[in-house]
């Protein structure tokens, strides 16, 4: 069954944690890791760690290398660039990324 992607309202932006992550669940049960970096930037990527095979990426540490902002998996520390989903430690793997926007102080995800 395929459903059309839509903008889904997730939470007030005040529920995000600065420089850290929270996790949202979409209508189709996909889990999305949400990161607020600095005051303004929000990233949304798949929460599933393809290496550790567990839904944990939102609990990872945010890092930066040469301008790329990434999350390091809390399990085995593989790094995923937040705006592309590319894995810095294994060029053949990437995780899904999601579009986000803020409407009336609420975070929305397209998915």
């Amino acid at each position: 069954m395929t459903t059309e992607n839509t903008w889904q309202t997730i939470c007030p932006t005040s529920d995000l944690i600065k420089n850290s992550g929270v996790c949202a669940i979409l209508a189709n049960q996909e889990q999305v890791a949400l990161f607020q970096v600095g005051d303004d930037t929000i990233y949304a990527v798949a929460n599933f760690d393809p290496f550790g095979k567990a839904n944990v990426l939102y609990r990872g540490l945010i890092g930066e290398t040469k301008g790329d902002v990434y999350v390091a998996s809390p399990l085995l520390k593989q790094r995923f660039v937040l705006n592309t989903g590319a894995c810095l430690d294994d060029g053949t793997l990437a995780i899904k990324t999601y579009q986000t926007r803020i409407t009336d102080g609420k975070l929305e995800i397209f998915g």
């Binding site: 944690i17 850290s20 945010i62």
Partner: peptide, 22 residues
């Protein structure tokens, strides 16, 4: 604390030892 929470490594950030399944 708000200033420190984003610095903590896997186990410290939720005050427990994370296992392979999260």
């Amino acid at each position: 604390k708000a200033d420190h929470v984003s610095l903590q490594d896997t186990n410290d950030v939720f005050l427990g030892n994370m296992q392979k399944d999260g």
